[in-house]
Nucleic acid binder design. Structure first.
Lengths: 180, 180
DNA sequence: AGGCTTTGTGCAACTAGTTGCATAAACGGG
DNA sequence: CCCGTTTATGCAACTAGTTGCACAAAGCCT
């Protein structure tokens, strides 16, 4: 139930077309709420129907024609409401931990290479986040917005740090285990 | 695509009925792959149809009658295959980070109390994990199974530690922010 | 014996996300 | 001017997870 709110947030930051949104999701909001262009278009349709957003007037709004959306007051109100609403954290769901648990029963053969691959991916993601931090969060920039964005980025950095450390340890443990 | 494998793992650890599985999910596997009893029954049905598991012979298998399942060789083979298979980590999806990003646009009013609530919940979960660690992982127990289970538990502990630290910092930052 | 709660199983409808494909305009090169 | 690529929009079918409810047996209390 969060995709519409992710879109409202993105559109408030800057009115955009479906494709522009898709690209921006790939770079920023998508780091913690990813979406495909199909999802985004479907949701834009819904939000427009509910009068939370509207397409900016264009000359010839035809198929294959860029359509830029902006948020209406009702949309902003809904986002404000949702943001302040109390929501339960949803339980962790991680296939890798599950696989390790399965490996404890059927044997660890073959899982090591995938752990190594995951480690590389998380290291890469961590490097990307740190690059963003270096580039976008110089000591000078310090508006409330910057501080919040930095806080969110820090969550990403810390999570990726956790995974790289944990995976390193996991690989070490696997090595010490008697071969099965 | 992991629930059937979670169930196979649980059944290999110990043959069980649907309700027993549900309870065990609440205490162990469910910490990283939760499921409701409805999901579990549906999946048990599927797994039985595909001959990955079978119900242990009972006198009168009627509705409202306990049905204990065990894993068949084909089921174990499938679990072994899945465990060793290469799988991409799925991108982070976290509503709280999204809400904070929204708050950067529409204002942080009202979000603080929920952050505090989340902090309490994560602290509680952390305490629960640490209790399990104390109880189930004494220095003596050191079979390969124990080591893998401990490794998984440590992931849970480290994740909850991350969240408590990050939320503490987030609350601190919010306080320092000019009221909106 | 009659009703009340617990144990156990399960269906049906709904919601959210994913995958695969279709379509059209615009643009750039030969 | 045709033709392939890029930009842009979108539908349809599928998969997975959630929510709400139903129903039967068994035990337990009075």
């Amino acid at each position: 139930m969060s995709l519409p709110h992710a879109i409202l947030t993105a559109l408030l930051e800057k009115p955009s077309s479906g494709l522009e949104l898709t690209r921006r999701f790939d770079r920023s909001i998508g780091y913690f709420w990813s979406a495909t262009h199909q999802q985004i278009y479907r949701e834009l349709g819904r939000l427009e129907r509910e009068a939370h957003i509207r397409a900016l007037p264009a000359e010839q709004p035809a198929r294959g024609q860029k359509k830029v959306y902006e948020v209406l007051p009702a949309g902003r109100a809904e986002l404000t409401r949702w943001t302040a609403e109390s929501q339960d954290p949803k339980p962790l769901r991680d296939a890798l931990l599950l696989r390790l648990r399965a490996a404890a029963v059927v044997g660890t053969a073959g899982i090591e290479s995938d752990l190594r691959r995951h480690l590389t991916l998380h290291q890469r993601q961590l490097a990307e986040y740190e690059e963003i931090q270096r580039r976008d969060f110089q000591p000078g920039k310090d508006t409330p917005q910057d501080r919040l964005h930095h806080l969110i980025l820090r969550a990403g950095i810390d999570l990726e740090t956790f995974w790289t450390q944990w995976l390193t340890r996991a690989l070490q443990e696997l090595e010490e285990l008697p071969a099965q």
